[in-house]
């Protein structure tokens, strides 16, 4: 699967990061990172802890203001845009530390995910005009479809905070997918999952790609990364160490020396 995608002629990239720098009071968390993510791929970012992976995600999402460089998504410059505007362009993400809405049910969480498709105004909602009722039905339907894709349909009415950790992580993916992103950012989706859950996650990521969504993945779980990704970016101390197909990366002596040598720790 990955071989076919990688060998096909690369179209214009969906995401192009150019010389991105992010410093925190003198500490360079990202020191000029450049890479391109073609549309339709599963693209993984790996690297040791502190390499700048989550920083990269936070810069992409507008949580941080990068010091310099550019982030172009489908022709739009993302630098300087507020997070909600970046989301509106078609980027969604999950979080390394769960950011579920614990005060809502699973279905409601995913319905919030549909926010970009909702048009209900404040006044219309307060008066519960007929179009609001129709929209509520539509949002519910969309949310249920997404839950079905993520195999969570039977959990819809449960409070999100009462479910096991693995399911909560899956709800975050469902919630992000409900926004119908073109680019989905997954921040360590396998962390804390057991083997069965990790296998299911691999299938889910493949299913997500099959719906046409490009996936950018930060993950430590090497067997998962190597089997699911089309291309990889290796970060080390905020710089790009290597970029290429899983086969390239596994054969790269620098990567092996700096990082993959330690991959045994992550193997299941």
């Amino acid at each position: 699967m990955s071989a076919i995608a990688a060998s096909s002629p690369s179209p214009a990239p969906l995401l192009a990061v150019e010389a991105l720098e992010q410093s925190f009071g003198g500490v360079m968390a990202l020191a000029g990172v450049s890479f391109q993510v073609p549309a339709g791929l599963i693209y993984a970012v790996i690297g040791p802890n502190g390499a700048g992976k989550t920083t990269l995600f936070n810069a992409l999402c507008g949580f941080y203001a990068p010091s310099s460089g550019s982030i172009r998504f489908d022709g739009h410059e993302l630098r300087g845009l507020p997070t909600h505007a970046i989301a509106a362009l078609g980027i969604s993400r999950t979080f390394q530390n769960l950011q579920l809405f614990f005060n809502m049910t699973v279905l409601e969480n995913v319905m919030v995910g549909c926010h970009l498709r909702a048009k209900t105004g404040l006044l219309a909602a307060a008066l519960r005009l007929p179009q609001v009722r129709r929209e509520e039905r539509r949002l519910r339907e969309w949310a249920r479809e997404t839950l079905a894709l993520c195999e969570l349909a039977d959990r819809a009415e449960q409070p999100a905070g009462t479910l096991p950790y693995g399911l909560m992580k899956r709800i975050e993916i469902a919630r992000a997918l409900a926004a119908r992103p073109r680019l989905l950012l997954l921040d360590e989706p396998a962390a804390g999952l057991n083997d069965t859950e990790t296998l299911a996650l691999r299938e889910l990521i493949a299913r997500i790609r099959a719906t046409g969504v490009t996936v950018l993945l930060v993950e430590h779980h090497m067997p998962l990364v190597m089997s699911v990704s089309d291309r990889l970016l290796v970060l080390d101390y905020g710089s790009v160490l290597a970029e290429g197909t899983p086969a390239d990366i596994q054969a790269d002596p620098r990567v092996v020396a700096a990082y993959l040598g330690g991959a045994v720790h992550y193997a299941v």
Binding site: F63, N103, H115
Partner: peptide, 14 residues
């Protein structure tokens, strides 16, 4: 309620 639950996540959902 999303704003109450997690402002980060709420923003990320648009």
């Amino acid at each position: 309620r999303a704003v109450h639950g997690s402002e980060f996540a709420a923003r990320m959902l648009g």
